[in-house]
Nucleic acid binder design. Structure first.
Length: 411
DNA sequence: AGGTATTCACATGAAACTATTCTCTGAGTTAGG
DNA sequence: TAACTCAGAGAATAGTTTCATGTGAATACCTGT
């Protein structure tokens, strides 16, 4: 503890403003354990899934190509973590003949297009290709050559594969699976992870048959299982006695309600603890969890809004303005047409070029997907068919959103 | 009254376009031998 | 003659526009009673 030494040796003034933060005992023992991306050395309540996955992948150890796998399960059911865990175990036994690659297809600017996916795959093999300029099939060739040269069994994990397929189609999956028949000395196995249970149904038949050779379903955790998982993480992540049973129960219960999302439970407890620590409390209490729940919600919304492009923000402001001004007399809903009008006004005031209504329509449905607004299509008979838009935000969040938006626009 | 046709106000889809960033290639230019 | 420069052709990508087509049900319009 070099800081303590420094303090003792009086190298730091004893009125330094940071001193009081140092002296308060830390709640955390090892904070990274509480992050949802942490892979623990033991995964609870996934014994069955681990068993079947390892059975499928075991042939790799004997030099055969394992079947391709589809992994399903809603958010926070431990899909990613389990796969990572299994890959780690696999590598522990056999490093020379097996190569594992994990790629998250949703990562912006990393693997969200076919080109970038292959660029990423190449990068994993130590080949850097330019971001643009090359035809995609060149990357495809390069990847093929490298894999062939390596003489390994390559296990490629494509997390959130549905996002990529929705964006660019399933052609690349077909190409990847087809590679195997052309590869002589190496083989590729694909593990596709998705939280969209019906994803497989709208795949090309060829892809469906070759990729869906094996399927593993991850069921949501129930409250008891969540509690176990949390408990273990708490033991590792916090100093003893910091979190009591009631808090644990509460987090598990909230997460269980949200379709057994373990990530949610972890976020809750971590943020609750951060809040407690900042307040100078040495224990995490239930009210901290309440605040954490709100804060998580708020942060999520604000973050997504801030990261939206300007036009999208303008559209959101148009929605917020129209809803708050009660365009549709005192109801809290607005229609696409109202939004477009309000949007045009905002553009005029801010000197932004006005996009077509067609585009605005898309931007509105994007905001819907992000969960910032709720919209449903209604038919008003003779008076047309349109979207009925409602803000999906609590008043508190809404006010914050307004502040953020008004910072960016004159309105 | 009951049935059918219209009509509105957008939704939704597909394709094409724009602008930006970047590679590759080959022609032209330059400097050194 | 090798090395360098530079313009032009192509690609990838994101964000849009243009054009075309779809659509649910309140109303207008008929029809036969």
């Amino acid at each position: 503890m070099w800081i303590v030494e420094k303090i003792l040796s009086n190298k730091i003034m004893n009125n330094n403003i940071f001193l009081k933060h140092l002296s308060s005992p830390s709640i955390f023992k090892d904070k990274k354990v509480l992050s949802s991306s942490f892979v623990p050395d033991q995964i609870l309540h996934r014994e069955q899934e681990i068993e079947s996955l390892s059975k499928i992948l075991a042939p790799a150890l004997k030099g055969y190509q394992p079947n391709n796998i589809f992994v399903y399960g809603t958010v926070g059911t431990g899909k990613t973590i389990t796969i990572k865990f299994i890959l780690n175990q696999l590598k522990e036994i056999e490093k020379t003949k097996i190569k594992t690659i994990y790629i998250n297809c949703k990562m912006k600017k990393v693997a969200d297009t076919e080109y970038r996916l292959f660029a990423q795959l190449l990068k994993e093999h130590g080949v850097i290709v330019p971001d643009t300029g090359l035809p995609t099939d060149v990357l495809y060739r390069k990847f093929f050559d490298i894999v062939e040269k390596e003489e390994k069994i390559v296990i490629i994990v494509l997390d959130e594969i549905d996002a990529l397929v929705n964006k660019v189609g399933d052609e690349f999956l077909y190409n990847l699976t087809r590679m195997n028949s052309e590869l002589k000395r190496s083989q590729i196995t694909i593990i596709g992870i998705t939280n969209n249970l019906s994803f497989r149904d709208n795949l090309d038949l060829r892809v469906k048959s070759s990729l869906g050779e094996e399927e593993v379903l991850f069921k949501p955790y129930n409250a008891l299982q969540l509690k176990d998982i949390l408990k273990k993480r708490i033991e590792e992540g916090f100093n003893p006695g910091v979190v009591d049973e009631a808090v644990l129960n509460k987090c598990a219960a909230i997460a269980a309600q949200e379709h057994g999302d373990a990530r949610r439970a972890l976020d809750l407890i971590r943020v609750a603890a951060e809040i407690a620590e900042r307040n100078g409390d040495i224990r995490v209490r239930e009210e901290h969890v309440d605040i954490a729940e709100q804060k998580l919600d708020m942060d999520r919304v604000i973050e997504t809004i801030k990261s939206q492009p300007k036009q999208s923000q303008a559209v959101l402001l148009a929605i917020v303005n129209s809803v708050c001004n009660g365009v549709c007399n005192n109801t809290k809903t607005v229609l696409t047409g109202d939004v477009f009008e309000a949007y045009q006004k905002i553009c005029a005031k801010n000197n932004i070029n006005v996009l077509t209504q067609r585009r605005i329509s898309d931007l509105i449905s994007e905001l819907d997907m992000l969960g910032i607004i709720t919209s449903k299509i209604i038919s008003k008979g003779r008076y047309g068919r349109t979207r009925e838009i409602t803000l999906a935000l609590s008043n508190e969040v809404l006010n914050k959103v307004r502040l953020v938006l008004q910072e960016r626009f004159e309105s």
